[in-house]
Design a protein around this nucleic acid. Sequence first.
RNA 1: GCUGACGUAGCUCAGUAGGUAGAGCACUUCCUUGGUAAGGAAGAGGUCACCGGUUCAAAUCCGGUCGUCAGCUCCA
Length: 643
Amino acid sequence: MEKINLTFPDGSVKEFNKGVTPFQVAESISSRLAGDALISSVNGVQRDLYYAINEDSKIAIYTFNNKEGQEAYWHSTSHLMAHAIQVLYPEAKFGVGPAVEGGFYYDIDINETLTETDLEKIEKKMMELAEANSGYERQELTQKEALELFEKKGDQYKIELISDLDDKEVAISLYHEGDFTDLCRGPHIPGTGRIKYVKLLSISGSYWRGDEKNKSLQRIYGVSFPKKKMLEEHLELLEEAKKRDHRKLGKELDLFTVQEEAGAGLIYWHPKGARVRHEIEDFWRKEHLRSGYELLYTPHIGKSWLWETSGHLVNFAENMYAPMQIDDQNYYLKPMNCPFHIMIYKANLYSYRDLPKRWAELGTVYRYEKSGALHGMLRVRGFTQDDAHIFCTAEQMDAEIKRTVHFSIHMLKSFGFDDLKFYVATRPDKAIGDDVVWEQAVTSLKSALESEKLDYEVDEGGGAFYGPKIDIKIKDALKREWQLSTIQFDFNLPERFDMKYIGEDGKEHRPYMVHRALLGSIERFMGILVEHYGGSFPTWIAPVQVAVVPVSEKYFEYAEKIKDELLADDIRVELDYRNEKVGYKIRAWETQKVPYMLIVGEKEVEAGTVSVREHKVGDKGSMKLEEFVKIVSEEIKSRVNNK
RNA sequence: GCUGACGUAGCUCAGUAGGUAGAGCACUUCCUUGGUAAGGAAGAGGUCACCGGUUCAAAUCCGGUCGUCAGCUCCA
């Protein structure tokens, strides 16, 4: 028997018979691995477990514990779901059914509208089919053969997909599983029996190939796991996300509303939400001043000249609101702050000695968003960017980028976001500015991250048309990613507005320009903050920091004294005058997620103390008010986020 | 914007063989003055999102508008 050498991910090499399959390789390691193995990769190409290896190769075996294995598992489950649907709805036509983050989906075309009950039916059928434990068998064929097959089935979507493939470049493959056949690149898990726990989560519309001109299909989302506990944990996480939904908490904690009568996508900040916002903005301003920024205020509308010059009317028109006529001139509501900051720059002639200029503004902008895109505070039509523009010389560029990245990390961490991911987005297809400048700018962005020893991913072609950018995403308490910061080069505006500065040589030069937003928008940031903390804000940003709870009205006078002293110490305090028992009041403030309660009754009046109760923790015993003030003030001052 | 679902008191929700509305919480008043997650009683509160249609009669059926939700698309 001819032998081949297989190299494992850890670098070790083992000898096998030629034609060995990844499954046999797994078996040779342990029966447990063979049982858990889902797919493999041979020389970097993902393969089914029964793929015959005929030459020396690098091999890796994937189980559900690997991202690769998980994807295959979910992908195979989507086939199983399609299978079940075909059994239940023989007329069904199938679109695509990939694995996605957190599960899988399949787009199907059937005449009736599916409901939640139908999902249960499909789920049940899937489990039935899984028990049959049929294998996923691969078959390769030519484009012509594939077309004939699906024409016979009358599946126009698959026909369209196959027509776009080229069988000289890629193998066109089918996978058979029981009596279900699907066009699929693979690989798949060994058999349906591996699929143990399935939950179909939701159903919604989606266009064939994501194009709204195409027919709308029904998309069923689901998730599956090999172990019951995994499914339970996953569902718990979804449950937790629902509990933390900022729209729900926004209502419960009376932070904000969006009102139908007043307009979609427009946020009304209630007093409690406004207090949180005030804290965020106050901190933001102080930190910017400390970091060498100057603050600006600019108007909310501007003449069309501004937007013609900036190019917004050409490139951003679909997001701008219709103009209003003032003295026979067209004025537009601003979708961005940059032209205004540039106007301030142009009001003076600067020397290279004056640069860099770092100008920041909490600038409220309005953008038209499609009604279906609106979502609580996360996607709105009017929002306040924590915007800034940096104008500098070419020589200063690298240092400014580094400085901005540094500052951004500081800001995000200050709010308790410690898990950060960095992305560098490069030149998109339609872009202005020449390649050399783009190259320089991208290098500058990358080296800024590298010098800070920060890992980053490159988002090829993800830059704005006017320049490349660094995006920073955070992971919240539920491990969900949100993009917050963006740091963008701009090769466009300095040119269009003919900006200049006088260099050392006495001649005019074009300044470099960087746009940046660190928190993104205050509305969106607030929404994310609410979800991250599940409404239990750190004391320094909590709308109410302390609630004073008198045991009965006999102690109102003492309670008022306490309240006044806390107010004098700049602590946000409320006194509960309600004619209720302590238990009732404690429950009320606890559900309002107030960090501290001070219970005062006869004992406290006599001893001159307060009884402290901490949110989520409970009774902390009694102490002198001064002592409590010291503890809380320190907590606020050092902005403790995680207790 | 598109597809689908939904829109009943401040909030969470009941309410289909079409016969002009109900609960809990919250709110108001009274009783109670009570120690660490809901004391008791009474009361007030809704042109059932809006507009139009079918009908003797519409929260309920039909159409349109607005809005919300899940996605698609897009993004701070």
